[in-house]
Design a binder for these strands. Structure first.
Lengths: 116, 116
DNA sequence: TTAACATATAAGCATATGATGATATAGTTA
DNA sequence: TAACTATATCATCATATGCTTATATGTTAA
């Protein structure tokens, strides 16, 4: 637990921030901070199409912020802890309240996620 | 120098991050971290029109991230240290290398800023 | 192999964004 | 007052973004 920051150059920082400036993606990243999630979970949580979720994940994957890991039928996404901006992103996400109530709401509505 | 973070809700965080996801605005904020700057300085530093700079500053002002302070002919902008996301923004900017060489370049080119 | 499910990709569309040039407003100075 | 400088705003445009529907691809299971 050091205080040494891995600096991120302006161009890289702005492209990461741009990605995080979208509410849906920011919320996804916050959820990924604690959980691995598959696409169908995100689809259940956010009120948008599967296609839309897939495209958001594509953008996050394109800059390397997330990893994908196929488990059978499902593809689980996780934060890429090797990314050069990982510390930057973590630090930032720590200012945002956790979004776990989104998962709980699903459970309460009986819309429990199928891919677990 | 405490470690207690002022949490920022997801909506507010994403709107701040969206603003910071633009290279020009991010660079402006980084410069403002150390200096008060007037519009003409930004115009001299970035390769865009005065109109464009003015519009970027407008967006930053609209969410309250910056304050303006007229000094005669000039309007100086500064970070709003009272903003609820100030700590969040500061923390984030601390990951980005300072942009002071931009000011130095201007000086070296004899384009020294007129409004000082 | 076929059906069913999970995910990705393509095409199209409405809206947002960032830039510009022209013009308006405000302060300074002659 | 008029001329000059600094800044803001308006109108416009090209491009980017996020969404949708339709379709393609990949995996599992009958």
């Amino acid at each position: 637990m050091t205080d040494i920051k891995t600096m991120i150059d302006l161009d890289k920082a702005s492209s990461v921030l741009k990605l995080m400036g979208d509410k849906t993606r920011l919320s996804m990243l916050k959820l990924l901070q604690k959980n691995e999630c598959c696409v169908c979970e995100f689809v259940a949580i956010f009120n948008v199409s599967q296609s839309s979720i897939s495209q958001h994940l594509r953008k996050l994957k394109d800059v390397g912020l997330v990893n994908e890991n196929r488990k059978g039928q499902w593809i689980f996404y996780s934060l890429n802890r090797q990314h050069e901006a990982y510390e930057f992103v973590q630090n930032l996400l720590d200012f945002i309240p956790d979004q776990d109530q989104k998962i709980k709401e699903l459970e309460q509505q009986g819309l429990r996620i199928t891919c677990e």
